[in-house]
Write a protein that binds this DNA or RNA. Structure first.
Lengths: 333, 333
DNA sequence: TCTATTGGTTGGAGCGCTCTAATGCTGTAG
DNA sequence: CTACAGCATTAGAGCGCTCCAACCAATAGA
């Protein structure tokens, strides 16, 4: 249970500690003879460098911290994949922590991440207040994903929710729909742009927007639909704030004896793996998640290495994925 | 971008560095006067201790490393919640890394985690070879979740797949089913026990087991069902290896014009959030995921602090969750 | 022959912290 | 008035590493 140190390797290889350090860092100014001797000794002892001691001594870090607000949401998994890809490429490691969508726990996760003094921090859809973010940004480069910010010290990566909503509306209108309701995400992070995009697109088509208050869950989507049915104000098409909401909406419609898409078309948002299930097969708006991660990592590394200081704002264009929950009103044409 | 050190705080508070250290660790042998002075100075400077320097100096760590084999699977999120809960309670932090189900990437993640010299490691359903695990176990306490091992140096936490499969079979038999097929998980980690449990339960009921080779995915479940239909060997009930597989099976059944559960009953395994969606509403086997995490963290902390050395094997009992995809053959009674 | 130059190698300081042993300082007893 | 606790406080070494300046051949140039 005790790991060998650089000293042990040096002793065994018959060289100085500094030389071992050079070898471990892949320095070119080491003779081949010594290099192989050192590597052999390291191998035999099962030595691997102590990342903390290293970063303490070098006053630099090759670690990027990633705070995932909700590990339960597969959305973030793909963003992490993107971050990991770029980070690894550039010789950085990542450490993840999670906040479980609770500000208190997230704050702790942030503290914990900061205590490792990483080179930079990516926050995925954080729920902590902006002040906590700006405080972190005083200490190291910070990139926000799926959350906007006006702080000039942080970079942001978001999808253009207005465009996404417009794509959905355009699709439905082109199918012949006139009455299209939006099940709104309430205070959800990205609900605002999506709602604005929906309203603008409807108006652009000369149609009357119908915004129904809802939330990012299965149950909320179902509830909203039941409300619409009770009101007698059910439209021919629904644009949900996200995929979960859309799936809830579909089940409520089916419970009421309505067929999707024959009677009502439904569009989700996010293109989660759920939407892709053949059993669901939801028409939805896709966000380039891995690209989010790649851009976030790149932005961070630019700040870390190229000392960029002006903030960067990435606004990615989402795309429409047509599956089987949308059709012309009155049944497939 | 430069964080204050203990020295800075000491200077500002007019005390020695050692005193600041004592205050930061909450030592009782510091006068109230000094303590408040130090805390005030720390607050003003925005000081927080450097975790790495601390662990380097103390030769101990209050960090638990967690390797999540697949961030896309919400199963692990709940296990992490359980780990986090216990760890936090005991004053430990966790850092997560992911292997993306690729042995190479997982190995890297492991290396990265080890380089932080955490107090212990939890591996969630790792795919790396056993040798890599035993090597890690030489350096620190290791707990495996959702993967068994014969290594006496590692603890394991698993669900009892045999019991789970038996629960499912018993349920179906009690509904009146006689012909029940198992869509097998192939080489998947937990497929073996589930298969054995299925076969044993069928035999216990005097029924003939029908194991169909399949995989842990939506598409594989659908494929298996199409095969059974083509063969003319479709039974009245299906026990899938996991929820994804079950959902794929359901969609293939519906595509073929069969109704679930009226014509065929389907049982999943894992009780993922997918199964709980009203649109899916899958009868399935639930594993106490958070409990997995709690037990894993506890086992680790026992090794870390109480120096336990004999391995612990937790085998948790799963439970049946009845939803709407199972009924008596020939329609709901 | 002597001085530069080069490439490989090394000692030692120091990163921010903890920990041990030693210090100073009361107050009480002898 | 000294002795001795008992307590709060501190100096200093050291954790495993990096980095700088110094060092030491060996070769090249004058």
């Amino acid at each position: 249970m005790v790991r060998p140190t650089m000293e042990d390797v040096a002793l065994r290889a018959g060289v100085s500690r500094a030389l071992v350090s050079l070898v471990m860092r892949g320095s070119p100014k080491v003779s081949d003879m010594r290099r192989t001797a050192v590597l052999k000794a390291a191998e035999e002892l099962g030595y691997s460098p102590h990342a903390m001691a290293r970063s303490l001594a070098s006053r630099t870090s090759t670690v990027l911290g990633v705070m995932v607000s909700d590990l339960h949401n597969a959305f973030f998994a793909e963003v992490v994949d993107g971050i990991d890809e770029v980070a690894r490429e550039q010789g950085f490691d990542i450490i993840i922590n999670t906040g479980g969508r609770s500000p208190a726990r997230e704050r702790r996760a942030l503290e914990s991440l900061l205590s490792f003094r990483p080179a930079g921090l990516v926050l995925l859809s954080p729920v902590v207040p902006a002040t906590a973010i700006s405080k972190a940004a005083e200490q190291l480069p910070v990139v926000l994903v799926a959350r906007s910010s006006r702080l000039s010290t942080v970079d942001t990566v978001n999808d253009d929710g207005e465009v996404g909503a417009r794509l959905a509306v355009d699709h439905l209108v082109s199918l012949g729909h006139q009455r299209i309701a939006h099940l709104d995400g309430g205070e959800g992070t990205q609900a605002g742009p999506r709602r604005r995009g929906y309203v603008a697109a409807m108006e652009a088509h000369g149609l009357v927007p119908q915004v129904v208050s809802s939330e990012y869950t299965d149950a909320a989507g179902a509830r909203a639909i039941r409300g619409l049915i009770a009101d007698g104000s059910l439209p021919t098409a629904i644009l949900s704030c996200n995929d979960f909401n859309a799936v809830g909406a579909i089940s409520a419609l089916e419970d009421a004896g309505l067929r999707v898409p024959a009677d009502v078309s439904v569009v989700g948002y996010d293109n989660t793996s759920l939407a892709a299930l053949r059993h669901v097969s939801l028409t939805t708006i896709d966000q380039p998640r891995a690209e989010f991660g790649r851009l976030a990592a790149s932005a961070l590394l630019q700040r870390v290495r190229d000392d960029r200081t002006e903030p960067v704002r990435h606004l990615l264009t989402p795309s429409l994925v047509v599956r089987t929950t949308t059709a012309s009103p009155g049944g497939p044409r």
